[in-house]
Simulated assay, not measured.
Amino acid sequence: MNAVIRADGSPEFAMVSQVSGAILNIILDPIFIFAFKWGMMGAAVATVLGQILTAVLAVWYICHETVKIFL
């Protein structure tokens, strides 16, 4: 969805949403792998949570822009 957001004229928001998911992944990886001792499963969970954050931000942007179009 980041490509749609970039094409809509908001490349900054597309970058912020993607980078925020990556930063969350970087923060959660050592916590889940070493602190919780989840190993590979911890890395997978951290990656999924980072992707979910990116998707939530993208959906929020799409819904927010759709409301502005109809008003």
Rank of each mutant, 00 (worst) to 15 (best):
M1H: 10
M1F: 09
N2M: 11
V4P: 03
V4D: 08
V4G: 07
V4M: 04
A7P: 01
A7F: 13
D8S: 15
G9E: 02
G9S: 10
S10V: 01
S10P: 01
F13G: 04
A14V: 03
M15F: 14
V16D: 04
V16Y: 14
S17Y: 09
Q18I: 06
Q18S: 15
Q18V: 05
S20Y: 00
A22P: 01
A22V: 15
A22G: 12
I23Y: 12
I23A: 13
I23Q: 05
L24A: 10
L24P: 10
N25V: 09
N25I: 07
I26E: 00
I26V: 15
I27M: 10
D29Q: 01
D29Y: 04
D29K: 01
P30T: 05
P30E: 09
P30S: 01
I31D: 11
I31A: 02
F32C: 10
I33A: 06
I33L: 10
I33C: 08
F34L: 14
F34S: 06
F34A: 09
F34V: 02
A35Q: 06
F36K: 12
F36A: 14
F36W: 14
F36V: 03
K37A: 15
K37G: 12
K37M: 05
K37N: 15
W38A: 12
W38C: 05
G39W: 07
G39R: 06
G39T: 08
M41S: 08
M41K: 13
G42R: 07
G42Y: 06
G42L: 09
A43Y: 02
A44P: 03
A44H: 01
V45W: 05
A46Q: 07
A46G: 05
A46L: 02
T47E: 02
T47D: 02
T47K: 03
T47I: 02
L49P: 06
L49S: 05
Q51W: 13
I52K: 00
T54C: 07
A55C: 03
V56W: 04
A58N: 15
V59C: 07
V59D: 00
V59T: 08
W60P: 00
W60V: 10
Y61Q: 09
Y61M: 01
I62K: 00
C63H: 02
C63L: 13
H64R: 12
E65V: 05
E65K: 10
E65C: 00
E65P: 00
E65T: 03
K68V: 05
K68F: 07
K68S: 10
K68G: 00
F70I: 07
L71G: 13
L71N: 14
